[in-house]
Computed example of a mutant assay.
Amino acid sequence: MSEPLSTYSATARAAGEAALGQAAWPRGPRARRVLTEMTLPFAGGEFSLVSEDISEPTEWTIEQDRHTLIVHLEGQMQRLETRIDDGRACRAPARPGEAWLIPAGAHYVGRAEGGSIAYAEYRIGRAWLGQLTGGEAGRPLRPLMKLRDPLLHGLTGRMIQLGDEDDDLAGMLRDSMAQVIGLHLLREYSAGTAREASTGPRLSRAKQRRLEDYILAHLDQHLTLGELARLAGVGTHRLIEAFRHAFGMTPLQYIIAQRLQLACSLLESTRQDITSIALATGFSSHSHLSSAFKRRFGITPREFRGRAKGIG
């Protein structure tokens, strides 16, 4: 499996590390306290809407032979630490709309404390996901934490609306929406194949962290393969192969994903105009950001900001 990634910003990472570094968890985790849970089936698995009390330290573990997608919907967290396999921990509370993707066979552990929270959880069969693209097991998905993907958030909202409907049409619509989610996961978040991961060039963990931190610190600047290759100490061709094996995508795809993640954060948390946000995240213009944003998420930056702030 490729190296687990945390796709949260350098600022969020530093804030989370500092907050959790100040003190250890005051007491051990208790048994989970689920307040409500609704589960809906779809052709390739099931979808659950859960509300839970985490006023005391609460721990979750997941290790299944199917993919798990968790979308945080609402509620306050004082602290959250999550880890997938042996990758580094993500230490930053979940915000509404953020998602965690745990590939089939991966081991996930999460520990949180706060108030009452609500989240959606998809459990997706590997064989069904593979059938969407004509394969038996499908391409492997890469683990992700604190992912901002407005398309997944919006589709999850529609799935919740269908929870109160049990007619045939609602069932077919759930299946169709699940297919859209599955295809989106395969297109955007697939990892390299097992054969590629075992035979291709590799980047050490230290080099991966160096590249990740450098990219996050220079998202507003023009980044080239040459400078990234020099940073990693390899040639450009070798960098592309090794980067794909480590991060599950090409350097260009990764840079665009990080720029869009930062744009989401700025759209939600600031009043900067969209042109300023575009330039601050490395896009050449308002239209350049809008085009990339809509291609990835299905809505414009203006529409995302309106939904995030409860406008319209």
Rank of each mutant, 00 (worst) to 15 (best):
P4W: 09
S6I: 11
A12H: 12
A14R: 08
A18M: 08
P26M: 00
P29W: 09
M38W: 04
P41T: 06
G45M: 05
E46S: 07
V50Y: 04
S55E: 09
P57Q: 04
E59I: 11
D65I: 05
V71G: 07
L73Q: 13
D86N: 14
G87E: 09
A89W: 08
P93K: 03
P93F: 02
E98L: 11
A99H: 12
G110P: 06
G114Q: 03
A120I: 12
R126I: 07
W128M: 02
G130R: 10
A137H: 08
A137S: 11
M145R: 07
K146M: 15
L147R: 02
P150R: 03
L152S: 10
T156W: 02
G157R: 09
Q161W: 02
D164F: 14
D164T: 14
D166P: 00
D167H: 05
G171E: 08
M172T: 09
L173S: 00
L173C: 01
Q179R: 14
H184R: 10
T193C: 06
A194D: 12
R205F: 07
A206Q: 13
R210L: 03
I215G: 01
G235I: 12
L239R: 03
F247D: 00
G248M: 03
P251M: 04
P251H: 05
Q253R: 05
L262V: 04
S265C: 04
S265K: 08
S265A: 13
L266M: 14
T270I: 10
G282T: 00
S285L: 12
S285Q: 09
H286E: 13
L289Y: 08
T300R: 01
T300C: 01
F304C: 01
R307C: 03
K309Y: 02
G310N: 04
I311Q: 07
